[in-house]
């Protein structure tokens, strides 16, 4: 299991793309928003939590189809499926590798991008906390989508179409947590809901992902 994680991380670093691309995309989205809505910092600081969450979500989406497609193309998935590793473990590790190369860097970079959007001071810890709690769910749900579409040629667009509705609850509670934190409101409910969703999908969704992956490998 560990060796699979190490291999995936090595590949992500060496092949480039994964890591830097998501961050660059996140930066560009953040920079483009003021061009779209105007430079008033009062407006920007109001919408900053939502924009940052949306940017992180889209940056995550960008690399989803790489989670399984590369291993599918070169035959590694067939070999992993016949190896001693359970497929449930394989998809969990794949999601973890995706989170380490996408979700975690986005979370760490978000405060700097928050500066660009005049995020109110009390919002920073909440923004980081909400992303830290929420982005693992994005990776796990994304892995499920990737497992569903892995056998489909040019499945990237379909993958986005399938996965985006699944992101709605995470986005709502994540952005709400960041927003309430920034405005100094009570944060307990969205915090608990976000944590609940994330731990729920981490616990249950790998079984569904492994199931559909097995169907696709048939």
């Amino acid at each position: 299991m560990i060796s699979l994680l190490i291999r995936d991380l090595k590949l992500a670093f060496r092949a480039g793309g994964g890591f830097g691309l998501g961050l660059a995309f996140f930066l560009i989205v953040t920079v483009l928003v003021p061009f779209g809505v105007g430079p008033e910092s009062s407006l920007l600081s109001k919408i900053a939590p939502g924009i940052l969450w949306l940017g992180a979500l889209l940056a995550c989406l960008l690399s989803l189809d790489r989670i399984l497609a590369l291993d599918w193309e070169d035959g590694s998935l067939d070999l992993l499926a016949t190896s001693p590793l359970p497929l449930e473990g394989v998809v969990t590790i794949k999601a973890l590798a995706h989170w380490l190369t996408t979700g975690l860097p986005l979370t760490l970079a978000a405060p700097f991008f928050g500066l660009l959007l005049s995020l109110p001071e009390p919002g920073y810890p909440w923004l980081v906390l909400s992303l830290l709690l929420g982005t693992p769910a994005l990776s796990v749900i994304g892995t499920f989508g990737a497992a569903l579409t892995v056998g489909i040629k040019r499945g990237g667009l379909l993958l986005s179409l399938l996965v985006l509705p699944f992101y709605v609850p995470t986005l709502i509670f994540g952005a709400e947590l960041a927003r309430r934190g920034a405005e100094g409101l009570a944060t307990t409910t969205p915090l608990l809901m976000l944590a609940g969703i994330t731990f729920g999908v981490i616990a249950l969704l790998p079984f569904a992902s492994a199931l559909v992956l097995r169907v696709n490998l048939r």
């Binding site: 590694s76 016949t82 001693p84």
Partner: peptide, 29 residues
């Protein structure tokens, strides 16, 4: 868990060295 399967595609990673590729599979097994 007694079967080793090898198909048309070798499941090799272009960005890993020969040793790394083999080490990965020996770790998995």
């Amino acid at each position: 868990e007694s079967i080793a399967y090898a198909a048309h595609s070798d499941g090799l990673k272009a960005m890993l060295s020969v040793t790394e590729n083999l080490n990965f599979w020996s770790d998995v097994f």
